[in-house]
Design a protein around this nucleic acid. Structure first.
Length: 748
DNA sequence: TGTCCGCTCTTTTTT
DNA sequence: AGAGCGGACA
């Protein structure tokens, strides 16, 4: 039992807990994975429990993999145990028992992109106004319903009174029909249908209850109602349920995660033992304190405070940049400066709120030749060519998948347009057949536009052939065969553009992915492969060994740690995001996200913001994030703020318009006085260089704080001079200008 | 039917 | 700013 010696008393107590409900409140960096894996090892080695009877559920593939690796380290390689994500666990169950709830075993999984296509079709078919009912919005309602177990019928009963409710109900019902008809499930279905299966079929439930006598759930604070049901149903028989979580790290409420699950766990499972893990092994003291000073502002937390016996370390550094370019430049510069010595590129992470922010950093890092890796954003598997070939593969697996057929029927071009497809759809629904079935009817195909006939026949024959032989063929062979025989590859090659070349490259890369899977599992079947792919997230591809700076969202960063962390964009409206302002509890969730971000840092933590930010094509003055104000200032390093041209203490007092200091700033040298009322500029425009070309003024003529007047915008104030670029703020319009273009602007 | 252009619209997080 | 859509045209 030496392996338990590495644990602290609380961790140890949790690890050797055998029976009954256990709630582990594990703060950030408190060694929760270690505790869980040790518990698993303990159950197996000391208590003689078979791995067969243990189930461990996580949210991400990455977490599952890590847990598996670490369990194997403890008890020896090759543990045949269910350590899976919620979705993959449910998928496995459904693959075995789908027929009991009216699905065929070959059902396919629709990802969000597929869902969007389906709902769009429904919207069109029902003549609903897409403007008033945006697909994303309708889907969010549907997803919400599924997480709560509200069927279309029930939704109709509850919301059928008004027009809007009726419309959404109609769409929800239609959506469900399409999925059912296509023998498809979306992500929410995987959980929902499993729960329905359990509720409907005592035999199946009893089987899993008996099988999983010890259940562990990671990141319990992020479970939604249906996931809770899933766990609860299985745990009921033996009541050996151990959940680990941190209410301060609940950052997925927007997606249905119900923080009450963890807050009420003790009420829910009688005789729960609660263990708090409060020692943090990750971060230096100041970082921890700083993070705590922010999260403290949330109400209704389970009280706990992390501590560490590590050194205080450096203070948190804050830098208020001029604009997002300056922000990125600063971060790149700091990385370059620190990279010497102990720290390698891979020890740095830039964690932002939105994926859209990544671009500026990419440019700044490239400019300094700093290797980096962006995670998230467009998923690799969302690329068009990958989706296309996957649609072919899905068809081979399940020819009833009309969505996939519609996607590829004219890809490559086969002369089937919107109209023809529409006709086929109608006919198919009249004959109650799938589109593919319809196309196996020679008469139908012969009736297609003449130039389409041959190529469609070929396509159908190819799919049919592979569909019949899929059991005997390797996935990579099917893949190759499809690429060639469908003409997809050829058509790309004929396009002869850089873009098409890139696509071909991606397709090649995809093939190496297939090879990787096949190497791991030589028996890999098409359906196995498809489902592995379906549930993969970009973050799973994070290779911790690659020596590159990591860029990702704070959401994706949960569970990771880095010696040096940068959190840019600390501005109201961006972080916390403006959308969160409208929702009740929205700010609290953002604050938790901030906490998650900050606690990723081990040694150094940087927060930055930009005074001026261009995002989504619009430039605005920003206000520093309220989270910065909550931060305990004694833990923040003002000296480290790198000096830029200061604004020489100019006050805006008396300046027309009364806006003011965007708020607290460490340097205190941005030229604004703190505490006045800030009125954001209504609008900010960059005047292009070539609009005016008078040479009458030189840059040197202007200094920060100069009052100027402009023929069009009225009076303004110079707020920065950088080389020949002068930024001038007007009452309602800010103008950034080159000195030589200052013709209409006069000093006053 | 396919392509191109210009217009508008959207801006969070993801299994 | 960029994607994605729709309309106009070949």
């Amino acid at each position: 039992m030496d392996y338990l010696n590495k644990l602290n008393p609380q961790q140890r107590e949790a690890a050797i807990h055998k029976e009954g409900p256990l709630l582990i409140l594990a703060g950030a960096g408190s060694g929760k994975t270690s505790t869980m894996t040790h518990r698993i090892a303990y159950l197996i080695k000391e208590e003689g429990i078979s791995p067969y009877h243990i189930l461990a559920v996580t949210f991400t593939n990455k977490a599952a993999k890590e847990m598996r690796d670490r369990v194997e380290d403890l008890i020896g390689a090759g543990v045949n145990m269910w350590i899976l994500t919620f979705h993959s666990a449910c998928l496995r169950i459904l693959r075995t028992y789908a027929e009991r709830i009216g699905y065929s075993k070959d059902f396919v999984v629709y990802d969000p992109t597929d869902q969007k296509v389906v709902i769009k079709n429904c919207i069109k078919e029902q003549n609903v106004d897409e403007k008033k009912y945006p697909p994303a919005y309708v889907l969010s309602i549907i997803s919400d319903c599924k997480e709560k177990g509200i069927s279309p019928a029930k939704f109709g009963q509850e919301n059928g009174d008004d027009f809007k409710g009726k419309t959404v109900h109609g769409l929800y019902a239609a959506y469900e029909n399409v999925l059912k008809k296509n023998n498809a499930m979306d992500f929410d279905d995987l959980i929902l249908r499993t729960v329905q299966l359990f509720e409907k079929d005592d035999e199946v439930l009893a089987y899993y209850q008996d099988r999983f006598r010890y259940i562990m759930v990671d990141e319990y604070q992020d479970t939604n109602y249906m996931q809770y049901r899933f766990i609860k149903l299985m745990a009921e028989a033996h009541n050996n349920i151990c959940v680990v979580g941190d209410d301060d790290q609940c950052i997925y409420q927007w997606r249905g995660a119900d923080i009450k699950n963890i807050l009420d766990f003790e009420k829910d499972f009688k005789n729960t033992k609660v263990i708090k893990l409060e020692q943090n092994y990750r971060s230096h003291g100041n970082i921890l304190e700083a993070a705590h000073s922010v999260i403290e502002n949330n109400k209704g937390r389970k009280h706990k405070k992390l501590w560490t016996d590590k050194e205080e370390g450096e203070k948190v550094k804050y830098y208020r940049a001029e604009d997002e370019k300056d922000e990125a430049r600063y971060i790149a510069q700091e990385i370059d400066r620190l990279r010497t010595g102990e720290l390698k590129y891979k020890d740095f992470a830039i964690l932002y709120r939105t994926n859209a922010q990544s671009r500026t950093f990419e440019e700044a890092l490239s400019a300094r030749d700093i290797p980096y890796r962006v995670l998230g954003g467009i998923r690799y598997y969302d690329r068009k060519e990958i989706k296309d070939i996957m649609a072919y593969m899905r068809l081979v697996q399940n020819t009833a998948d009309d969505l996939s057929l519609a996607r590829i029927i004219n890809e490559p071009k086969r002369g089937i347009g919107e109209k023809t497809l529409e006709k086929l759809r109608t006919l198919a629904s009249v004959r109650n057949e799938s589109l593919f079935q319809l196309l196996t009817d020679e008469e139908i195909v012969d009736g297609l536009p003449s130039k389409a006939v041959e190529s469609i026949k070929e396509m159908v024959a190819t799919i049919e052939q592979y569909s019949l032989e899929k059991e005997n063929l390797r996935v990579s062979d099917i893949y190759d065969g499809l690429l060639v025989k469908t003409g997809y590859l050829k058509s790309l090659e004929q396009q002869d553009t850089v873009e098409a070349e890139g696509r071909v490259e991606n397709l090649l890369e995809f093939k190496s992915v297939i090879y990787d899977y096949e190497n791991e599992n030589p028996q890999l079947s098409l359906s196995e492969f498809m489902e592995r792919i379906a549930l993969i997230a970009e973050i799973d591809n994070h290779d911790a060994d690659e020596n590159a700076v990591v860029l990702m969202t704070m959401h994706s960063a949960k569970g990771l740690e880095f010696p040096v962390v940068f959190i840019p964009g600390m501005e109201d409206g961006l972080f916390p995001g403006w959308r969160s302002l409208e929702k009740p509890g929205g700010i609290d969730e953002e604050r938790r996200l901030c906490y998650v971000g900050m606690t990723r840092a081990m040694q150094k933590l940087y927060l930055t913001s930009a005074q001026l930010r261009t995002l989504y094509g619009k430039t605005d003055y920003t206000k520093e994030s309220q989270f910065l104000k909550e931060l305990d200032k004694s833990l923040v390093d003002g000296d480290a703020i790198y000096q830029k041209k200061s604004m020489s203490g100019t006050s805006l007092n008396g300046f027309p318009g009364n806006y003011r200091n965007p708020g607290w700033s460490q340097g205190g040298n941005d030229g604004f006085n703190s505490g006045e009322i800030f009125r954001p500029f209504d609008q900010l425009k960059y005047i292009k260089e070539n609009q005016r070309t008078s040479q009458s003024s030189k840059g040197g003529d202007y200094q920060n704080g100069d009052k100027v007047s402009h023929s069009k915008f009225g009076e303004g104030l110079v707020i920065s001079v950088d080389g020949s670029t002068i930024t001038i703020a007007f009452d309602s319009v800010g103008v950034k200008k080159l000195a030589k273009d200052l013709a209409p602007i006069k000093k006053i």
